[in-house]
């Protein structure tokens, strides 16, 4: 008898002035108001809540967990901030010391412990490890030697490397590179393709890559070893402007088709794709706080759309604000 007694008390001290019992589906960037805003309510019956009180206008952000986010301010300097206490009522923001300026893209590993920042204007990449409590930035990695713009980043589970998809609009060609502390910050070419817009890691060392230019999705097995590239699905299977990828726990793959405004689900066994139409253009699978819920776009000119993959796939809206 290891547990002698179990005493329960209901800890629900309610205060009529607080919103503490409001379910929060996630926190997203509101580009119109340049702020971080919680999604109040569950998918299907939610609203954008009031902007979180931050000392800067937010340009972009990635939420690492219930209470932590990296946010980039909207000034010319593009300072990166570590925001804590997002939903706990004691929000605080501190500059991420040593972070590169003008971050245009942020990606994290699944655990949210390592982030990669990319600055197009500075042609730099930077790893931020020790998140959230002991953030530490690496030396910036110069991307000046490769033409084009980074359109996709995927960070390995251990944060030792990242895959970056680069496309050069001038030449119409692109490539995926592996880079990070594990490569001594050397850019190692993984594969070449037209316009890699989405990369997602699968089973640790496999990568699924979407080529926006050719409406093709590839699997590259063993990205740090044999690097075997296999086509998975293409335009003939319904891929249309693939711009984001997501691997679900059942190993089925979701493709955000910006061209056809659909979410494609690729069966992991048959590799056949079924689609879910949506009233908007998906451009991301942004993981939210509610398990299995992802933002598909940003609020603003159209309703914010959420993918609820907690059971059946379901696309729902958060009402547009007037």
């Amino acid at each position: 008898m290891k547990l002698l007694a179990l005493v329960l008390t209901l800890g629900c001290a309610l205060n009529a002035a607080t919103n503490s019992w409001i379910p929060i589906t996630g926190v997203v960037v509101d580009p119109v108001n340049q702020s971080l805003r919680p999604i109040q309510g569950l998918p299907g019956a939610s609203l954008l809540g009031p902007a979180l009180n931050l000392p800067f206008a937010v340009n972009r952000a990635v939420v690492l967990g219930k209470n932590v986010a990296i946010a980039i301010d909207a000034t010319d300097s593009g300072q990166a901030w570590l925001v804590t206490g997002l939903l706990s009522g004691d929000i605080a923001a501190n500059p991420l010391q040593g972070a590169i300026a003008g971050t245009d893209r942020i990606a994290t590993n699944d655990a949210g412990s390592v982030a990669v920042l990319y600055s197009k204007s500075n042609s730099q990449l930077q790893f931020v490890s020790g998140l959230p409590g002991s953030a530490s930035v690496s030396d910036p990695i110069s991307l000046a030697g490769i033409p084009g713009t980074v359109g996709a980043i995927a960070v390995s589970d251990d944060g030792g490397w990242a895959l970056i998809g680069v496309s050069d609009s001038d030449s119409g060609s692109g490539a995926v590179y592996r880079v990070g502390p594990a490569t001594n910050n050397q850019l190692l070419t993984l594969t070449t393709l037209g316009d890699p817009r989405a990369i997602v890691l699968k089973s640790g060392q496999d990568a699924v890559i979407a080529d926006y230019a050719s409406d093709q999705v590839f699997l590259v097995r063993d990205v740090i070893g044999a690097q075997e590239r296999t086509p998975l699905v293409d335009g003939s299977g319904g891929v249309s402007g693939p711009i984001a990828l997501l691997i679900l726990p059942d190993q089925s793959m979701l493709i955000a088709n910006a061209g056809s405004q659909t979410i494609g689900r690729v069966d992991p066994v048959t590799m056949q794709m079924s689609t879910i139409p949506m009233n908007g253009v998906p451009d991301r699978f942004e993981k939210l706080l509610q398990p299995g819920v992802y933002a598909l776009n940003q609020p603003g000119g159209a309703p914010l759309l959420l993918l609820d993959a907690s059971s059946d796939l379901n696309v729902v809206f958060v009402p547009q604000e007037r």
């Binding site: 547990l3 309610l14 019992w21 569950l42």
Partner: peptide, 26 residues
């Protein structure tokens, strides 16, 4: 008490109730 707050009307009948379990033992 929760449903009597104005905040609750924001999200209809939704809730995230907090329940603290106190343990006596391992």
């Amino acid at each position: 008490s929760w449903y009597q707050t104005a905040a609750s009307q924001t999200v209809g009948s939704q809730f995230t109730a907090s329940l603290t379990i106190n343990l006596n033992g391992n």
